[in-house]
Write a protein that binds this DNA or RNA. Sequence first.
DNA 1: TTGTTGTTTAGCTATTATGCTAAATTGATA
DNA 2: TATCAATTTAGCATAATAGCTAAACAACAA
Lengths: 120, 120
Amino acid sequence: MLDMQQKIKIFKALGNETRFKIFKNVFTGGYACSIDKKKPQDDIIAQATCVTTIAEHFSFSLPTISRHLKELKDANIIKMTKKSNKIYIKPNPTIIKDLADCFADLVDNYNDTMFQFDNT
Amino acid sequence: MLDMQQKIKIFKALGNETRFKIFKNVFTGGYACSIDKKKPQDDIIAQATCVTTIAEHFSFSLPTISRHLKELKDANIIKMTKKSNKIYIKPNPTIIKDLADCFADLVDNYNDTMFQFDNT
DNA sequence: TTGTTGTTTAGCTATTATGCTAAATTGATA
DNA sequence: TATCAATTTAGCATAATAGCTAAACAACAA
């Protein structure tokens, strides 16, 4: 699935408050692109959002948000699709699923083999 | 369960190669404390490991590893128990379980409500 | 008491991360 | 073509991170 370096990249990306908030909102649909709200049915990625819209939710500058988004993209947490002169941002649920599975496996494996631990 | 700041702390802690390796090995039993190997049955936390033993697996200095362990402890990822003049390190599986659950929920919620996404 | 082992703290340096503004780029539109 | 809107790149300042060595501390052993 995910190799160690990929995992570390994901953790690094999510270990920053601004990026974590972006991640959470992108995933839970917390953002809506103002333009798309007017004509959702016209657009195949109507539920996606764009860079400027996300930046509006923060007090940081647009370039700063842009760079945070790049990091989330490089960690494969979000997907960015250019359409005309805008970039639509979507979550990448498969990678988060992989991460959840990897943690769950770790815990399962731990419970199976290390039951003799005293975890007080 | 975990609030946002706790999650960010966990991600920050795991977003470093050395700490990630320590975390992985502590969880999977990759370390064994040399002293305890001689008399495992005598010790209630025989499967645990200690600071010096972990440091032996890295080319970094002992103080450096000590500080990494402190960060993992502060993020609640590991538990450190002092016994005589040694500190035993154990994983904290509950927090990792919480994290796995939180990711899994995110994905489930995403799949339920955002099925109209085109995730190509 | 003196020494030994295990660990942390202090203080330093180098690198990385995070913010900014200004300028560049890209695509759409008048 | 000129302009506008959306985004990124460049260059800079500051803060945080991660490494080191030396020194301190804590518990045990001789």
